[in-house]
Design a protein around this nucleic acid. Structure first.
Lengths: 124, 124
DNA sequence: TCCATTATACGAAGAGTTTCGTATAATGGA
DNA sequence: TCCATTATACGAAACTCTTCGTATAATGGA
């Protein structure tokens, strides 16, 4: 019931999060800016997502309006939990080290992380 | 050729990384500590993984000995890249913030991260 | 009104993943 | 030596994911 989005579903969710509730056509056009895909493919996926409860659907108008059911950060948290378990044996801090060590971060980003660290250390 | 491990494959790799090169039976028993799965299921998966090059296989003895082809941290790096793109729109630092914010870290772990941060800040 | 356009609905193909049954071969103890 | 045990090999079923063709219905402009 609490099904995790597949890769394609996540791609669609990303559009919904970015541009807000919209029609299949809107998502279709958005996706086709970066890759080629068929209209009915997107439609089918979004219908399935509605069945799964990943999106809600307003059927007032002819072109139904879809919206993401869960927030981006909620979803990310779930995916992250899964991922940490699967790929990092549950060790979140090892994942953090990997991220910080292998990806370039800007000064601002580093500052933000340092700030968060300080808050965490205060609490303990 | 550089195929990413599936979930089941990753589960097997985790065993190989943890206990080192071993037989199908060893992996089978290890997996069955936490969940139920059939022997031939594990065997088949590991045969496929050998074909894909995810593991190497020593056929000297009757019970072949399998070993992970790529290191744990190498594999994690690849998976991480994928994951960051898919789930966090490519923003590694947002992922890091998520990890640090939502998962409890020990003092030692925080210290380790702070150290890494300092090294990163020196370099810039 | 008629028709081109554009929706949704639906089924099914094709690929990949996971599972397991069965066949067959090696091994070693009674 | 025989046989129970335990390997590998292999094929195929069951599922999921992704894609798309086709049917059908609504809409609106000429």
């Amino acid at each position: 019931m609490d099904s995790r989005p597949t890769n394609s579903e996540l791609e669609i969710l990303n559009v919904l999060w970015r541009i807000g509730p919209c029609s299949v056509r809107d998502v279709f056009e958005e996706l086709n800016k970066t890759r080629t895909t068929g209209y009915t493919t997107v439609l089918k996926l979004m219908q399935i997502m509605a069945e799964k409860g990943l999106v809600t659907r307003n059927e007032q108008n002819r072109a139904h309006i879809y919206a993401a059911q869960r927030s981006e950060s909620d979803t990310q948290r779930s995916l992250l939990d899964d991922f940490v378990d699967r790929a990092f044996g549950g060790s979140a801090h090892r994942l953090a080290l990997h991220v910080l060590g292998s990806k370039k971060s800007s000064e601002e980003e580093l500052a933000e992380i340092r700030q968060l660290l300080e808050r965490l250390e205060e609490k303990s």
